[in-house]
Design a protein around this nucleic acid. Structure first.
Lengths: 344, 344
DNA sequence: GTGAAAGCGCTAACAA
DNA sequence: TTGTTAGCGCTTTCAC
């Protein structure tokens, strides 16, 4: 910066003021400084600037992986918002328990970012408390954390609508296939189960635990087993509401391999609307991770500017059912009393 | 850090030395300092440290998007390597031409990272030159840049093997569907076409330009048109080698919708082996973006430590064909002279 | 509207 | 082995 100052014949203060766009610089001086900066290919060192301002112009995110449709889309949305605000994005990827422990022990984001977005973890009380004394805004994404700003999709309502879609088609035996990961059921997983149950109850149907089966995510074999269990039931379902599109696709795969037609003999609906849903023409409950990312980014930015605003804000994003080709009325429709069904 | 020093009854220098793990600290003092640091939840400000060391302990990546299978996997691999080295990762997402211009104009990574990884852009000479005077190692990923360190997959060889797989099944009319984006054909696109042609030529087959058709990526309609063109040919192909799995899937989709059996009447192979390939049981040429990310990260780290080593290193990663259920011998096999085919 | 000077939190010489 | 001191490159008073 000293070089630029010298070349423009001004002090470094003036260069600083010019480059930050402060209006207290005369036009001629501004022009001279800008030209000098351009000629010298000068870029301000964020580090030095942070040191004195205390702001890093950097937002950190904590994610379990980068390698998923959801995270890719969410971070793309977030990146968009951050770039528009002149903020940079640093990513902490925490794939396993060891890394997670290390992260919460050292909290490396401390002082090196203006805000932290925590994606898709089901945090313990301790971890949340640890983040509380981070002295920076923390936004929780894809999870509800009481008293802290959160952004998430309305999984319960989504599952209700997805299930209702099947009910409205006339299905009465509707199964739910959910995923169980290394850490047990995720938060979304539980919410979607709740929604599924709620829709059935609303429709006056009994909750049959045999109709709820588990599978590891992204595992054909697991899905095959789950489907096998459902087909082995005395009264098998006529429709499956899967917790995620990937599971739905695996279910469809298994059914077709077993020569059971979808949707002719069995309807299948998913949740997410990720690209694979289009390839399979899958009926699904759509959410927008990219919007989640954007909203979370904007919330973080607003918290950076006004640390006290929105401190407890929960932003709940909507879903919508996209009917496609994997759901249809059941093969032998029973004479269901339509009046008892709430509208889809 | 002053607080920690006071609490431990030492100078800040000693705290600094301790926290950086220098061995010139006596065990008792080290213990006191570490305890004090823990009690105060102290984390070193990377900014202040960078200011004096000139090293940021941060690696920047320039990516066109985060929202793709390839980038997700590649960045996950990269993140792994970086975390192990205690480096942080900042991501610049440049989705469009405007952002790209802005990036190369301002070069915001300058002085704010120890290395830059440039993913999947076909850079112009100017842009490359611009990165040259960035005063930090720049690693080019998924592209060949003469005289600069690069990491990429061997697209030509991959396409050769993919095409040979079809040749070995007995196909003689093999089409190639490639993608054309907003910026024209990508580098990989061209390489894969080259490999396709090379395999045909090796097999003594003529190159028929009618067998090479274009489609926008991820667009069912475009794929349908492309397939239509191929089927309308006087002598239609018996197999399609698609530039990417997504295109292959779209092609299969169209074929099946047209009641053309895959692989019974038409074989289809892809390139990438992304998850959707498994769902469709797609024969494909597999590459490992996660490995690409790891290798690129390691190359960058080595360049940071030894700026002069490996300056021109090109790391070319292998691919392999995964035969699955979408390829089979052609419906009416001609009596092809097997001896002329190179081994797969 | 501009400059001089102090200092942000750290590390790296140098002394002790 | 430890402490003292001088800056790293910037922003921010405070004068002018």
């Amino acid at each position: 910066m000293a070089d630029v100052a010298e070349r423009a014949g001004v002090s470094t203060s003036t260069v600083s003021r010019t480059l930050r766009g402060l209006s207290t610089v005369s036009p001629e001086v501004r022009a001279r400084v800008e030209q000098a900066a351009r000629e010298l290919d000068f870029a301000v060192s964020r580090h030095a600037a942070s040191l004195v301002t205390g702001r890093t112009r950097n937002v950190a995110v904590l994610v379990p992986t980068l390698d998923s449709w959801f995270m890719g889309a969410a971070l793309s949305g977030l990146a968009l918002v951050l770039r528009a605000a002149g903020m940079e994005l640093t990513v902490y990827v925490i794939p396993g328990m060891a890394e997670r422990t290390a992260f919460f022990e050292r909290l490396p984001a401390r002082r090196n970012a203006d805000a932290l977005l925590v994606f898709s973890f089901d945090l313990t009380e301790e971890e949340t408390a640890r983040l509380d004394d981070l002295a920076m805004p923390v936004v929780y994404v894809s999870q509800h954390v009481a008293g802290r700003p959160s952004v998430y999709v309305d999984d319960v309502a989504g599952a209700v609508h997805g299930t209702r879609h099947l009910l409205n088609l006339g299905h009465r035996r509707i199964a739910h296939v959910r995923t169980v990961g290394a850490d047990g059921f995720s938060f979304s997983s539980q919410e979607r189960l709740t929604g599924y149950r709620q829709a059935l109850t609303e429709a006056g149907l009994p909750l049959d635990d045999d109709l709820v089966v588990d599978t590891p995510p992204g595992d054909k074999r697991g899905a095959a087993e789950a489907v096998g269990r459902l087909l082995g039931l005395r009264e098998p379902p006529t429709a499956v509401f899967a917790e995620q599109d990937e599971v739905a696709v695996a279910v469809i795969w298994t059914l077709r391999a077993t020569r059971i037609e979808v949707p002719g003999q069995m309807s299948v609906a998913g949740f997410d609307d990720q690209p694979v849903a289009q390839w399979f023409d899958l009926t699904t409950v759509a959410q927008s991770p990219s919007r989640i990312g954007r909203e979370a980014g904007e919330l973080a930015l607003s918290l950076i500017d006004e640390p006290d605003a929105d401190r407890e804000r929960h932003l709940v994003l909507p879903t919508h059912v996209i009917p496609r080709a994997t759901t249809a009325p059941p093969p032998a429709p029973r004479n269901a009393p339509e009046s008892r069904l709430p509208p889809d």
